[in-house]
Amino acid sequence: MRMALALLLFFSPAAALAEALITTLSSHRVLITSNYTGTSIAVFGAVERDAQTVARATGYDVVVTVRGPRQSIVVREKERRGLVWLNREQQKFPDAPSYLSVFTSRPLDEIASEPARLRQKIGVNAIVHAADFTNDRGTADEPFREALYRLKSRDGLYFEKERGVTFLTPNIFTAQVPVPASAPTGTYDVEVALLAETVVLARSHTNFELVKIGFEQQVGEAARDASLTYGLATALIALGFGWLASTIFRRD
């Protein structure tokens, strides 16, 4: 890993910007097998400064944002009508990430002001409250955004970790990104933002993929591509087990 980092540092082109950000992941492909119980991906990064730029007195801040495959989600609210509680209002989130985690090197409010965070989409709150996250209905959509965040974080799928990014040296940092087993398969985007004195200096994007392999992959494919055979096979297995049990436990 250290070797890879060194190579990255060496070959990165001299950027026009004062600071350049170089990032890599411990793995770009996570394989799901039968004993999969979630995973953890390490993000490594280095800040490269060109010769003219002097070190910043305040040091750097890093924000890592990981977004899972997109989902179309409907949030519904129950209201009392007479005796019973019914689903009344609903709000659709057509393009919400299935998984969303944010890791920062310091508490968010020390890194940037609230308006700046909203503008730059830094932090789960800023992303969930972004104007383009769902159709804006003035203040009516607020409780639904809050509810989405609350319900997703209850399942461990939306979360924030202040001080989740550690600087190993003033220019090299790392972060651990836990992904629970309930997070769906697909592509996960990793966005790293470099800040100093509340200003974003650089951003970099990379991604990793969560894929099923072996038996899990075959089952998934069979269920999708040969659904009738798959259904009949399951039915046959169920009948077989039922017959087997009645033979084993036969008393007469």
Partner: peptide, 19 residues
Amino acid sequence: ELVMRPNEPFSITIQETRT
């Protein structure tokens, strides 16, 4: 479930996941 005040009045339904 029908008549009690729910602990969490909101619920989410995932309609589709795009992988």
